[in-house]
């Protein structure tokens, strides 16, 4: 038996230890090391916060009205004041405007925003003109004034939303770049059917397609259209189809029925449009009608 064979397997050689001969003594960090540590932590924290706040902020969802950009806040403000014009609830309007955080002096802030909207051509549409009138009425009632004052009606006027605004003149003392204001367009215009076509194609089979346009072919959004047949009627509005022209609207016919189309109160009814079959490329389809309404000359 050799020398090695006599060593028992479980026996640890004397020169081998699992622990150090001497445990290292803890050396307290120097002031410089503490300072460097704090600095490193600070640098890391600043980098992390910069990343989270500047480079990759949490995407804006569920934002509140006061977080909107300035012009959007102005639009929201107009909606609040349009509601106030309808229900005359002053306290509710003030509460809503406070949530908008437009400024400490709410009437003055409203006057300033109204001025800004006027300067950006908000009153070029009749609806914008009437809306600004309500805004002016609001802040004037609170004793404020602004460059949009010229749009206000004489004090004591009632039911402002229902009256036609007088044609305004140039702003005499505009302070924010506001220029002469155009007369608001009339709310009711007469239209006439300027084109009527029939088509036989799969994409529009069975549809009455209506375009309401300005004389220069620009589509008019929000125009109410009436489709009537013997037993009933239906209404639709132009501009509700995403991706289509603003003056576009359509209605699905039923085979065999006869329809008339008009802009209620603004045009005469069209001739009767019969939903009947047609043939295209060997297929039997329901024909479609394309009608274009334009302002009457």
């Amino acid at each position: 038996m050799t020398e090695h064979a006599r060593i028992r397997p479980t026996e640890t050689p004397r020169h081998f230890r699992w622990w150090p001969r001497q445990r290292p003594r803890f050396r307290p960090p120097t002031r410089l090391e503490i300072l460097l540590g704090i600095l490193a932590l600070g640098i890391g924290l600043a980098a992390g916060l910069s990343y989270a706040w500047l480079l990759a902020p949490v995407p804006a969802v569920d934002t509140e009205p006061h977080q909107l950009h300035r012009l959007a806040r102005a639009e929201y403000m107009v909606s609040i004041l349009l509601r106030w014009a309808a229900d005359e609830d002053w306290a509710a309007a003030i509460r809503s405007l406070e949530e908008l955080e437009i400024g400490e002096d709410i009437p003055a802030a409203v006057a300033e925003l109204a001025c800004e909207l006027v300067g950006r051509g908000y009153t070029q549409k009749g609806s914008g003109f009437r809306a600004i009138q309500q805004v002016v009425r609001f802040y004037q009632r609170a004793g404020a004034s602004g460059c949009a004052d010229v749009l206000g009606l004489p004090s004591g006027s009632a039911a402002l939303v229902q009256i036609t605004a007088p044609a305004p003149t140039a702003l005499p003392t505009a302070t924010s770049g506001a220029t002469a204001l155009p007369a608001p367009p009339s709310t009711t215009r007469a239209f006439q059917l300027s084109r009527l076509e029939t088509h036989c194609e799969a994409a529009t089979a069975g549809l009455i397609i209506v375009y309401v346009q300005e004389p220069d072919s620009r589509g008019i959004r929000g125009q109410r259209v009436r489709v009537s047949w013997e037993e009933g009627e239906s209404f639709f509005v132009t501009g509700l189809h995403p991706g289509q022209d603003p003056g576009y609207g359509d209605f699905a016919m039923q085979r065999g029925r006869s329809y008339r189309v008009e802009l209620p109160g603004q045009s005469a009814p069209s001739a009767a449009l019969l939903a009947r079959s047609c043939q295209a490329r060997g297929r039997i389809l329901l024909r479609s009608y394309h009608l274009t309404f334009r302002p009457a000359k």
Partner: peptide, 14 residues
């Protein structure tokens, strides 16, 4: 420490 601070900052910020 820099790494820990960055992680903490990102978590706080988000």
């Amino acid at each position: 420490l820099v790494g820990f601070g960055a992680g903490l900052g990102a978590w706080l910020g988000q």
